[in-house]
Design a protein around this nucleic acid. Structure first.
Lengths: 232, 232
DNA sequence: TCCCGTTTTCGACTATGAGTCGGAAACAGG
DNA sequence: CCTGTTTCCGACTCATAGTCGAAAACGGGA
């Protein structure tokens, strides 16, 4: 006799706010874990897959159009992860660009990853896993597009990478690495200098706004094909 | 009224056999999809998480001790992926070293990834995803340990990488890349030459037999810390 | 108008590690 | 002892990341 099993989806929605990486959470008003902070999500519907479900449930917390990337992280399925019922969760990473400030319900707020309040169930581990995934993919994909505004200066982009990666990043190197992979391109426009003056910064955008891994990062790549000769 | 939902685990167990990458599958004897080939797996038990479950269920097909690596791939949750019931699957990649030949039940067999027979449900997509994951991780982790015997020659290892990656690999380069990352180390022993003679090949082993990503592969890494000065 | 501090930009240089190549080394067989 | 075979290993090239500093382009005030 199988214990009744429920399936839920949960999302760690991350955004860079005021220079630090923050996560969206809501405070539980009822037991179990009353008062603790939980990730948005809920039960999987009958006619949707997990990805559709998490997007639907996020729409109840923030405007979906502001979530620029959603990605499956892992299944959390420990038998006692939620007291009482057998509940299996598919966890997601969600990203919101730094220039949007979605309206959120009154029980919901952003929290910096460093210094999270008391979290419900195993949601802290989910946030951790989402952060790890973000750090990894920032460095070998174009995932930066999901954190950045449509147009930005290199130093603004540098700030985003520093906040997400947690270590210094050279602006010169960042620009060169991203442009030579054709991930970044200049818009031609410039942004006016700040209050202290300074040279106006050129504006850039990501060439592609869907995830796409750079194949050149891989080691042990296929042999160089030299140049494919023209037809004889 | 929620439709009753079941949760199952499925594994694409891969092994290099006779120079080609093959997957373990069993032939369904009953509808639905009777006669088609399915991946090993089954229903999640009440007191186990998905990882324990897939290892348990694999034990019914092959000796678990021969599975050197198990890794979660993704959740497959399309509402109509299995006719009749609402069934959600957590898919895994499993690896078996090339020198073991586990006994399998009579309904079970290995099939080359190129030229799979008719597969049940969405299992072909799972195999595809597992293959992609294997290719990716072979090039920036030490995952090769899970495909290789405990000790091997460089050219034998090269054969495994060629079969798994699907493109030529230089033996010289393979050895250098893996040894400089401290993933490979010589045992000191040599293997006797083949029937045609030739110089005896040195034997190697993987230094670590658990998965472990090389941090040096990442681009945009933290700034060099030069040399940490000695204590004053 | 002319300095000056600020910020960005861009080139040059260095360092690291991957891909390639060819010759030397070590075996079996005749 | 010679030949064919396989492995080993050093040297070279090449691609790309990390570093540094000077020049460019602004605002503000003397």
């Amino acid at each position: 006799m199988a214990r009744p099993t429920e399936h839920e989806v949960l999302a760690a929605v991350l955004q860079i706010r005021e220079g630090s990486l923050q996560v969206l959470a809501w405070q539980r008003a009822r037991p179990p874990d009353e008062g603790r902070w939980a990730l948005p999500g809920g039960r999987l519907g009958d006619d949707e897959d997990v990805e559709r479900s998490v997007r639907r449930q996020l729409a109840e917390k923030v405007d979906v159009r502001e979530v620029t990337h959603v990605e499956q992280i892992s299944v959390f399925s420990s038998p006692d992860r939620v007291p009482g019922v057998r509940q299996i969760a598919t966890a997601f990473l969600g990203l919101v660009p730094s220039d949007s400030d979605p309206e959120v319900p009154s029980d919901t707020a952003w929290h910096p990853l460093s210094g999270l309040p008391l979290t419900a169930f195993d949601h802290a581990a989910i946030v951790e896993a989402a952060h790890d995934r973000l750090r990894a993919k920032l460095s070998y994909t174009n995932l930066g597009f999901a954190l950045a505004p449509r147009e930005f200066t290199i130093s603004a982009l540098r700030g985003l990478y520093v906040a997400a990666l947690g270590h210094p990043v050279s602006a010169t190197n960042l620009q060169r690495v991203l442009t030579r992979r054709r991930l970044l391109e200049p818009t031609g426009e410039v942004s006016p200098p700040g209050p202290a003056g300074g040279r106006p910064a050129a504006l850039f955008r990501f060439t592609d706004r869907v995830l796409h891994v750079t194949d050149a990062f891989a080691v042990l790549r296929p042999p160089s094909e030299q140049l494919r000769g023209a037809v004889p």
